[in-house]
Nucleic acid binder design. Structure first.
Lengths: 131, 131
DNA sequence: CGTATCTTTTACGTTAACGTCAATTTATCT
DNA sequence: AGATAAATTGACGTTAACGTAAAAGATACG
């Protein structure tokens, strides 16, 4: 099974990103591909991290915020201090996300309302032309 | 009642933004404050728009995307073509937002799971010190 | 072996969304 | 009127998150 690691091209196709993006994330210490000579090989762990990175971006988190949060998902045997700091950080972000969810619900409701109004307007314009 | 319009300072305090931001949004045609001589006076409509702008930003929309969407909320007697285009745009964004909500729910669930793991780890480290 | 393709490094370029600073104008206070 | 404070208009600066192009080494292929 050669699916253990992926080269940069496979990564790009799988996640719809450019090579530049992957190298950039590595330079920012978000990913840690191993090397086979010069070439990068992305592990299962890199793929899991990238998935979380892209998700974080969709929620409006910066790469630096994401980088810190990734530690929570990766933490194997960190020191207690580090863990508890990360834990605090995660609590904050969880609260952020739940707040965002509430606002999103509200926004969706409002948008639907506006769209109903728009639909009515459209109908009246179509059915009741000014001659 | 002088609360009909607000000056730039009042706006900044109310919405926690800088003057530069408000002028920038005006330059990008997101806000349309009236003038009293040189000074800007922000109307109720500007305040409603700003609220939507800030919300849109929190959902990761760009100012340009937001600008286009604002038309939907402002549309009084636009032409039918414009209205129906805006309507289509809104449908797309609504779908985006609902997808985002689904992903957000998933992310929240995962984050909670990770945090439970973290909490356990913390407890074991605290209650079971290595000597 | 030559060449075409892929990847890498280096480095400068770009866009969005403001920040910052200087020079003026306008309003306010004493 | 003079000083002080607040708002405005340029205009250049900044940061994040990549894009893009050049030069060079590694690999594959006929």
């Amino acid at each position: 099974m050669t699916t253990e690691t992926m080269n940069i091209r496979e990564m790009c196709e799988t996640f719809d990103v450019t090579p530049r993006t992957l190298r950039f994330y590595e330079s920012k210490e978000l990913l840690f591909p191993v090397r086979e000579g010069q070439r990068r090989l992305f592990t299962k762990r890199d793929r899991a991290r990238l998935k979380l990175i892209l998700r974080g971006k969709r929620f409006g988190f910066s790469l630096e915020e994401i980088r810190q949060l990734l530690d929570l998902y990766h933490m194997d045997d960190g020191q207690e201090v580090q863990l508890s700091k990360t834990f605090e950080l995660a609590k904050t972000h969880l609260a952020d996300m739940e707040a965002q969810r509430a606002e999103l619900d509200e926004a969706i409701a409002e948008m639907k309302k506006q769209m109903e109004w728009g639909a009515k307007k459209l109908a009246s314009l179509a059915g009741d032309p000014k001659d």
